[in-house]
Structures are given as C-alpha cells and as structure tokens.
Design a binder for these strands. Sequence first.
RNA 1: GGAGAGAUGGCCGAGUGGUCUAAGGCGGCGGUUUGCUAAACCGCUGUAGGGGUUUAAAUCCCUACCGAGGGUUCGAAUCCCUCUCUCUCCGCCA
Length: 423
Amino acid sequence: MLDPKLLRESPDIVRAAIAKKHLNVDLDAVLAIDAAWRTQLQEVEALRAKQKAANTAMAALPKGTPEFMAKVGEMKAVSGQVKEREVQLKEAEEKFRDAMLTVPNLAHASVPEGPTPEQNVVFSLHGAHDAPRPHAIPHWEIPGFDKIFDFARGAKVTGAGFPFYVADGARIVRALIQFFLDENVKAGYTEVNPPILVNAASATATSQLPDKEGQMYETVPDRLFAIPTAEVPLTNFFRDEIVEEAALPIYRCAYTPCFRREAGSYGKDVRGLNRLHQFDKVELVKWVHPTMSYIELDKLREDSERILRKLDLPYRVLLMCGGDLGFSQSKKYDLEVWSAGQKRWLEVSSCSNFEAFQARRAHIRYRAKDTGKPELVHTLNGSALAVPRVLAALLENNLEADGRVRIPAALVPYFGKEHLSFA
RNA sequence: GGAGAGAUGGCCGAGUGGUCUAAGGCGGCGGUUUGCUAAACCGCUGUAGGGGUUUAAAUCCCUACCGAGGGUUCGAAUCCCUCUCUCUCCGCCA
C-alpha cells in the first residue's frame, strides 16, 4: 500500500508514477473517498468526546438522582447517534482502504520507460548462448525423458503439471535444491524451513489476496492456502512486528515447493518443465534500511547470478520497464537462462525491490535508533533459483552425443556423479 | 477430538460496570549525587489515525487500542455470545 499522506499532499507525483507504469487508476476518486472518510471521522470523534465528557460528569453524581436521570436520557440520544454514525464511518473506512489498495507502488527513477515487455532493457549478458549445440533438442523430446520425469503418471495420480521425478530425475532435483541452499547460506542468508500452507491474513499481506485468489490452491474446510512462493511465509515472518534497527539488514532463504493453479496458461509455455502446478524453488527475502534498498537489490541480483555462473549456464539479466513492472514493485530484474533446445530464454529468477509498499501492508517496521520511533522497512525478494527451468536448461544445454547429460562441476558433489541418465 | 484453565503496555503483574488518563514492579532513557563502577533519589516511558500550528520538526488538541470480532448499557479491561491462540490432563498419531 502506498503512503496515504503522499497521495494527499503530492497527488501529482503519484499521478506521474502511475503513468510510468501504464496503469489506469482514478486518483481523483481515491482522493474524494479519502476526504469523505476524514470528514466522517472527525464528526464521530467529536460525538465520542461528548460521550466521554458526560461519562466523567455522571461518575461524580449519585445514581438515581433527577440530574443523573436527566443525563441518562440526554446521552441515550447521543448513544444512538454514535452507533449509527459509526456504522457509516466503518463503511467509509473500508471504502478508503479498498481505494488505496488500487493505487500501485511508484516506479523508481532508474526504471526504463515503456508500456510493454519489448522496452525491457537487456542489463547484462553472460555466457555463450549462441554457441553451436548440435545435440540440443527441447528437453521433453530427449529419449527417456518420460521415464525420469513422469508426467503421465502424475496426471493420473493428481493432474496435469504434477510430474513424478524418478531415479536421476529425483536425484537432480534434490541436488539442485541443496546446491542452491548451500550457496545462499554461504552468501549470508539464514536458512528457513517455513510452513507451506498459510492463512488468509498472510496471503493478504503479500497481496495474493484478494485479487489473485484464483491462482492459489485452497484447503477445505480450514481455508488455508498452498503457497505460490516461499515469499509469502518468509515475508510474513515479521508481520505486525517492530525489529531493532541494529538487526538490519536481515537476509533469509528458504526452499519450498510452490503451488500455482496457472489458470489461463497454454501452448509452448506449459510444455515439459517450463510451467508446472507444483515446483521447487529457493527464495531469498531481505528486510533492509530504507536508505540501503537499491544497493541491496543489486547485491540480491548478484547473489542469484552467481549461482547461474557456477552452473555454467548462459543467461541474461533484464531490467524491467515501467509497463512490465508488477503492481507492488519499484524496480525489478529478471534473470533468464538460455534454453538451447527450445532456443528461447526461460525466466528463472525475479529480483524486486518493494521499498515500503509491502511493509506498509504487512506492518513490518524497525525502531529508528536516533528518534526511537518505528519506521517502515524496505523489503526485497528474489528467486535463487526456480528448479524446473534451471533443470530444463541444464538438460538441453548439456545434452551429449551419447544421450546423457553432463553435470556441471559445481553440482557433481551434490549429484554424486558426472552424468545424468534417462534409463 | 474431549475436559479444564488462561490471554492486560518491551517484560512481570493488579484491576468484577463510572477520574482507568490502567496500580505496582522490572527493564530502558534523561538527570542529581559520585575518583570509577554500583547504589540511592528525581523525572520520563506504547501503537495507530485524525485535527491544529509550522518552511519543517518539536510542542499542542481529539479519537481508538487490555487476544480478535459482535452484543448488552447513558457508560465495558470488567457482563454476555462467537472465534483464535497458549497451558495442563486424556485420546489419537510420524
């Protein structure tokens, strides 16, 4: 959520920032709702002040005296009025809150202009993605692929997009998860193993609710949600809390399975390992001092990149333009790995700075040392990394003439051998 | 799942309808005293929203918050209902 005071005092700044994101928001309507709410608030508060004053006076009177009874009669009318106006105020407040939730976060000055993904800037390019790879084919066409990534049986047991990983398929997933976790811990992140079901309050704080409800699996009858990313439980760890300034920055990482209904996806995007309903991912989350969040964003991106380089995978970094930024992000980099068989880039990480936008909604603050007052932290997150797409790129880029896949040196200690077989 | 007991400020803890503006203590911050430290003494102490003043901040005024949400009442930390969580015992269980 954006700072309501910023909107009140500098609506033009907000207007310009929304234009940069190419979103359509009726700010005048939001401002009108805000003004109406504040007027009602003042009226109700004046009534309540009157009630409190009368209450103090009555406490000093002997009960049952004529003066006392007169007061009771008088305040009965006020009481009814307060109740009526409080109901209206509550409605106005909800309207105001809902209106504020339609206002997106502001794009940072360093975000490139542009309405569509075509204006994303290639920030950097690593590795020889155009090197000739004669054996490269889409990973789902590799002979034996179905044996160790068994989509058919997964569909029978659960549904499309829930594969079984078997033998070397299971082993490579486990190796990647552990490699990612170890690398992140080495980079200073504290490992966390969070709940993978969360309640509605948590899903709301990180903006999955109310709008993206249809993207999550929901349990009955407890109304718990299967997490679409570890960002949800990780970020909510400090929800409604005040941390000490000296504790910042806080770095956390977590491996979890992630669950996404992916309603509306189709075509080549969903072939093979490209897009699954259940997949494994290691996520990074940072809580930082507001003055540091852009430096921390670059460090976060670098932490994810380092892992791709250790795996010897060609990749590129995109700096997302205003129009391709999410609703709640101020700045975002995507890491895309080259998939030699499909001859396309696959997104394996998305590193974002939310500034105070997410922290305001989740009430995550730090106590400023000099003033002693609570201030909102800045939150950031990024993947390091998403397993299936890294795996897809690995299978396609490292496929050898004998039909096996060469395991990158850094991963061999985790996988336990130098080649993956489809037998 | 069953039975019982609980939830009050950073922490402990008193408070069973009206100066609660929540006692008292601990902790923390500031001060006095003081070779230093400690002790003693004095003062201060949470969060959120709104208003007013201001270049701005501080100060000031109002309101809300005693696990959450409803209700009763002129008036609720206190009475009633629902829910959540914690603890003890029983049951079940990897």
